[in-house]
Design a protein around this nucleic acid. Structure first.
Lengths: 146, 146
DNA sequence: CGGGATCCTGCAAGATACTG
DNA sequence: CAGTATCTTGCAGGATCCCG
């Protein structure tokens, strides 16, 4: 293995993609502690992304979010919002009216996550057809083998 | 609601982020069919990303992947690789040697996904400290309320 | 309206054992 | 070496009821 200078505080930011990846895996043998995994787990969460994207549009109240996301259960919405608030991605403002209103909105940090997230969305938009084609090809190939 | 011109074949690519998001949600009332969700579910998968990042480094054989990812079970590795191959992100080459060797590598499509993925990784690298700080602040705040 | 607390279930995923 | 098959379980997540 080639010797490689690794900065103590993080990966070598000038390193090419592969080296960066290898570096991350080496520095976090316990994957549950890896910050990258933490983020990816969140993003992959069934609802987190949907909530973030919805809030990207404009601030929403609890009920608005429920209706916007349609098939989210109230339990999951509450839970997702709490974790997002805890992570500092979403802020929760309570209006002491009657009945009480609660408004959720993206924090600057949450907004910053939106950019890479949108990168993924764009990839999905432009490459989903390829994925579907690959699936069709693969499926017909394996089925004809059977 | 404001009227908005939606191109038949996809979201308005010039639209600002929020409108794009709203658009996606509207066009896919059934979220399980939404291509964006499909991609995000994959990325969020506990192992998919790890495998892709590992293969980004260089092609790996099955056993190499197992050892590289350490705490993946053989079952999950097989399953993950099969789905990635089916989606056309990873290619599988069999060498008819004795004993047989199988090499997995990224396809061009898989490699293209790497870019947005790395965007997320970079976000995690640069903002994880903020998330942890937010958590600490949030936790101490709620705990003192109790 | 905006949740909290409970109960219950399905499936994701680990462990183990076997095969070409 | 590179998987497949089977069994088993944890827990994500839905449904439901209640409360300030």
């Amino acid at each position: 293995m080639k010797t490689m200078t690794i900065r103590q505080d993080g990966a070598d930011e000038d390193a090419p993609v592969p080296a960066r990846c290898a570096d991350w895996r080496q520095r976090y043998p316990d994957l549950s502690l890896c910050p990258v995994r933490g983020v990816l787990d969140r993003v992959g969460d069934k609802w987190t992304t949907l909530v973030l994207l919805t809030l990207a549009e404009r601030p929403h109240r609890f009920g608005e979010l429920r209706r916007a996301i349609v098939d989210i259960s109230q339990r999951m919405l509450t839970q997702t919002l709490r974790e997002l608030a805890r992570d500092g991605l979403v802020s929760r403002r309570v209006f002491p009216t009657q009945p009480p209103g609660v408004e959720y909105s993206l924090t600057p940090l949450g907004h910053s996550l939106l950019q890479p997230l949108l990168g993924l969305v764009r990839w999905a938009e432009s490459h989903f057809a390829d994925v579907e084609a690959a699936r069709a090809a693969h499926d017909s190939a394996t089925e004809e083998a059977a």
